[in-house]
Deep mutational scan, measured.
Amino acid sequence: LVRYRTISKIPQITLNFVDLKGDPFLASPTSDREIIAPKIKERTHNVTEKVTQVLSLGADVLPEYKLQAPRIHRWTILHYSPFKAVWDWLILLLVIYTAVFTPYSAAFLLKETEEGPPATECGYACQPLAVVDLIVDIMFIVDILINFRTTYVNANEEVVSHPGRIAVHYFKGWFLIDMVAAIPFDLLIFGSGSEELIGLLKTARLLRLVRVARKLDRYSEYGAAVLFLLMCTFALIAHWLACIWYAIGNMEQPHMDSRIGWLHNLGDQIGKPYNSSGLGGPSIKDKYVTALYFTFSSLTSVGFGNVSPNTNSEKIFSICVMLIGSLMYASIFGNVSAIIQRLYSGTARYHTQMLRVREFIRFHQIPNPLRQRLEEYFQHAWSYTNGIDMNAVLKGFPECLQADICLHLNRSLLQHCKPFRGATKGCLRALAMKFKTTHAPPGDTLVHAGDLLTALYFISRGSIEILRGDVVVAILGKNDIFGEPLNLYARPGKSNGDVRALTYCDLHKIHR
């Protein structure tokens, strides 16, 4: 019993810090008490220290592992850092350059016999395009090294910054494609005289377009951006097909006994025919423009016929181009109408809503002055909100995010209106959640004399007048207030005048 009563005193000691020596009952000389009392004092002292730490809000209350900052290894790049964003855009520009100039170089340097010394005699450094290609190869190699040090988000939505895990993730992902696209074939085969082989191998750079397509997928929600990307894709495919079309004609031209190829026909049409040795002929500019003209006309199913396939190889390629053109029509131009419709969806919704308003007016036989006010209010409210119901949009977000959005939407009023000066951010967040926005066209009466005042109004834009009878008592403008002081009276009061809008007004109100 003594032991039980001794232990039962522990909660009292913990909360009230009572010393055991003052209790005459606990001072009985028993061996059990002498053993338990020192333990009680020690526990009391420890609990006292913990309570003191909690009340003082000291940093040592938290466990040590929670006080440590997340460790980022040296030379690790955050995937959302500004440097990584700028670097990704730079790589994107280099990939676009590669997609345009690599097929052009591979096709127009394929057994090209233009006048001038061969590239091997001039030297590697004197070729501007080769120098640019070398810079692109170096940048792609540097990009691989950067990807080995860039964080990523795993399946659990955690940012991984450990170098080993980053390397394994990159090896399992895009490393092989990036490595093949970054191989400097110019340096590996330079001086061997195989410019045709170098041009063909350099087309491996186009593998990076797969990554670019995935990154550009984030802009699919913007109709104008999608339309622009589709047109660029169409032009890029036409450019690639033009390079292939020229390569076919250029390879067949020296081996044909009869002059029936499209390059021969082009030379005869523009007065620059090929001679018996295969030299001469149109310039590279004429060849490229004509090839691009043929691919565009074939892809769009126009086909004027002034550039036509004559050999079997050219006919087979033309059939493939027609098939590609039909697929592009289905996948690209078939979506253009939907994209344009999405661009004008706001206008369509406006006309639909206006039609419903006019049908309501016609069905209920609203008189002319009231009908005009109804239409003007709808037009003004639509121009202010673009038909978007803010309350319906915010309803799907958590309250903390709703408060931040409301604070942002009402920031101008909260910053410049005098009653809100000096208020804490928590108070402003709470008030912003209570605001209701209303609009009024010129001549609209917001409050009639004798109406119950259940709200306090803040003028965000425009001006109003307060009338008693036919006498203008006051004219209020931006950041002015009218209405009933909230919670100042037990019952809502009545208006002693009319409140009429002089201009288009936007008002925020808080109800009782």
Results as ranks from 00 to 15, higher is better:
72 I>M: 14
75 W>E: 01
75 W>I: 05
78 L>M: 06
80 Y>D: 05
81 S>H: 05
83 F>Q: 05
84 K>G: 01
90 L>F: 11
91 I>Q: 01
94 L>P: 07
95 V>A: 01
101 F>D: 01
103 P>S: 01
103 P>K: 01
104 Y>T: 01
106 A>I: 11
107 A>P: 01
111 K>L: 04
123 G>M: 01
125 A>S: 14
128 P>Y: 05
130 A>R: 12
135 I>P: 01
136 V>H: 01
139 M>R: 01
139 M>N: 01
144 I>C: 04
150 T>D: 14
154 N>L: 05
156 N>Q: 13
156 N>P: 04
157 E>I: 12
158 E>F: 04
160 V>Y: 01
162 H>A: 14
166 I>T: 04
166 I>P: 01
166 I>Y: 01
168 V>E: 05
168 V>Q: 10
171 F>K: 01
172 K>H: 05
173 G>C: 05
174 W>T: 04
176 L>Y: 05
178 D>V: 01
178 D>P: 01
180 V>W: 11
182 A>W: 01
189 I>C: 11
191 G>F: 04
191 G>W: 04
192 S>F: 14
192 S>T: 08
197 L>Y: 10
199 G>V: 09
199 G>K: 15
201 L>G: 01
202 K>Q: 01
203 T>S: 05
203 T>V: 11
205 R>H: 06
205 R>L: 01
212 V>S: 04
212 V>Q: 01
213 A>D: 04
214 R>N: 09
215 K>C: 04
218 R>D: 03
220 S>H: 09
222 Y>R: 04
227 L>Q: 03
228 F>W: 04
230 L>M: 12
233 T>A: 14
237 I>S: 04
238 A>K: 01
244 I>P: 01
244 I>D: 01
245 W>A: 04
246 Y>F: 01
254 P>D: 15
260 I>F: 12
260 I>E: 03
266 L>G: 01
269 Q>R: 03
270 I>R: 01
271 G>K: 04
272 K>M: 03
275 N>D: 04
280 G>W: 01
289 V>C: 01
290 T>V: 01
295 T>H: 01
295 T>W: 01
297 S>I: 01
298 S>W: 01
309 P>C: 01
310 N>A: 01
312 N>A: 01
322 M>Q: 04
323 L>E: 01
325 G>F: 01
326 S>L: 07
329 Y>L: 15
332 I>A: 03
336 V>S: 03
337 S>E: 06
339 I>W: 04
341 Q>K: 07
341 Q>M: 11
347 T>E: 12
348 A>W: 15
352 T>E: 12
353 Q>T: 10
360 F>I: 02
362 R>K: 13
362 R>W: 01
365 Q>A: 10
375 E>W: 08
377 Y>R: 05
378 F>W: 11
380 H>G: 08
382 W>D: 01
385 T>N: 15
386 N>C: 10
393 V>N: 03
402 Q>T: 03
405 I>N: 01
406 C>K: 04
408 H>A: 01
408 H>P: 01
408 H>Q: 01
412 S>F: 08
412 S>R: 10
414 L>W: 09
415 Q>I: 12
418 K>W: 06
418 K>N: 11
420 F>P: 01
422 G>R: 07
426 G>E: 08
427 C>T: 10
427 C>E: 04
432 A>K: 01
434 K>P: 01
435 F>Q: 01
435 F>T: 06
440 A>P: 07
441 P>S: 08
446 L>R: 03
449 A>D: 13
